[in-house]
């Protein structure tokens, strides 16, 4: 899941300042799951903006709200067609993908990011998410016992732990597990420590050139794509 986090209110208020009529747009998929941009957060944010507006006394935004199932596909944005006429900007509570799809769908409509797209991750416990994948395009989880050194090690190094590990934790924070200790324990459990003894050469950062694009095999076969 793509994990995002709401931006500080002050930043949002700065962004919306030039626009009178705003639509706060939630996303019913990842942003809902990570509690950053579901229907609940949309109305909470609008309410917070209204309190802030009342406090400052000199803002008069009109805030409306709507949540689509998924912002990252054009088709889901169709219900907005009749709404965009009445608004000056969309405050999107979705990941950067959703925001850009909105921008593509409504060329004349300013899109403001209400959240920061943080990482791809999984839930640890309720309300706590951890990064799990960096989308490096060169998955090596087979070598590391299913634990990603790129995301779980603060340095993303490939040949074992640095000397900063203490009590199984990372030098950066006592609350953060050392990814390499986790990998070691897991490989030891799997009886595959030889994988850790192997030398891993420097990463290939050019697995897919940026901006990355994937063209599915099916399209090539049917000749729909001229590559």
């Amino acid at each position: 899941m793509i994990v995002s986090e709401r931006k500080p209110l002050a930043e949002i208020r700065r962004m919306i300042a030039p626009y009178q009529r705003l639509l706060t747009l939630g996303c019913g998929t990842c942003a809902t799951v990570c509690g950053a941009g579901g229907e609940r957060e949309v109305s909470f944010l609008n309410s917070a903006l209204r309190v802030a507006q009342a406090k400052s006394g000199n803002e008069t935004h009109t805030l409306s709200e709507y949540t689509v199932k998924r912002q990252c596909d054009l088709e889901f944005l169709d219900p907005l067609v009749e709404k965009v006429g009445d608004i000056d900007a969309i405050l999107a509570l979705s990941c950067g993908i959703g925001m850009q799809v909105i921008a593509e769908r409504f060329p004349d409509m300013p899109v403001l990011p209400g959240v920061n797209t943080s990482f791809m991750g999984a839930v640890d416990e309720y309300g706590v998410w951890d990064e799990r994948c960096a989308a490096c395009g060169d998955c090596r989880l087979e070598e590391t016992g299913g634990i990603c050194p790129i995301t779980r090690c603060t340095k993303g190094i490939l040949n074992g732990p640095c000397a900063g590990t203490k009590d199984g934790k990372c030098e950066v924070s006592k609350d953060m597990d050392c990814g390499w200790i986790l990998i070691y324990k897991r490989l030891e459990g799997l009886g595959q420590l030889e994988k850790m003894r192997r030398y891993y050469p420097p990463r290939n950062f050019r697995t897919i050139p940026r901006p990355k694009r994937i063209i599915s095999q099916a399209n090539i076969d049917t000749g729909e794509d001229n590559d």
């Binding site: 340095k155 190094i157 040949n159 891993y200």
Partner: peptide
């Protein structure tokens, strides 16, 4: 050396490179 983490230093916002590790 691999190097200490950026987070322990005085430029915490800097990009940690770690293109290589010490073995590499």
């Amino acid at each position: 050396l691999t190097g200490d983490s950026i987070d322990v230093g005085d430029h915490k916002e800097a990009k940690p490179v770690f293109d290589l590790d010490s073995v590499q």
